[in-house]
Amino acid sequence: MGSKMEISMKVNGIEKKSYTEPRMLLVHYLRDELDLTGTHIGCDTSQCGACTVYIDGKSVKSCTTLAVQADGTEVTTVEGLGDMEKLHAIQRGFWEEHGLQCGYCTPGVMMAMAALLKENPDPSESEIREGMKGAICRCTGYQFIVKAVQHAARSLAEENEKEKLVQSAGEGGAK
């Protein structure tokens, strides 16, 4: 047991300050200290991806990150992705296309796939499967996860299209 360190980070948009043991894993910090239990632990060797969160917008496995390493950063978990009032496109995709069964790996897989869509908004099926390399799901056989990601990609494209229309309408109005 080491002495505790003061850390602060913005988690899902809210500033959090704590005294934490240096050895505490980020995933335990999020789950046990901040009660954000949507992020899960599926392995202890960093293969399964159930614990995937974002640090400053980049997806990381929170089971192989120390909480102190996230000091001063912005962390996003599945709870920050979207809620029932406003679901993220990836959450809608998983629901619409039966992308989950037991739902245990789902938060991590959704986080990873939402990050993939940011980098590649129109991935092919093989790019989606390739992009899921760091995630293990034991229930679905992955097929409906692929469909869920494709669904999300379509929704995001439509949302972007709409935004552009609104923007150009706004610009038109200003003229």
């Binding site: 239990t37 992020t39 899960h40 599945v78 029932m84 998983f94 739902g103």
Partner: peptide, 21 residues
């Protein structure tokens, strides 16, 4: 029909054993 199970699970509101405190 899409599943009634899903809303809690896709929003991080599941209640698995390790989530119990």
């Amino acid at each position: 029909i899409k599943r009634q199970e899903d809303p809690r699970l896709i929003t991080g509101n599941g209640n698995f054993t390790d989530d119990i405190k």
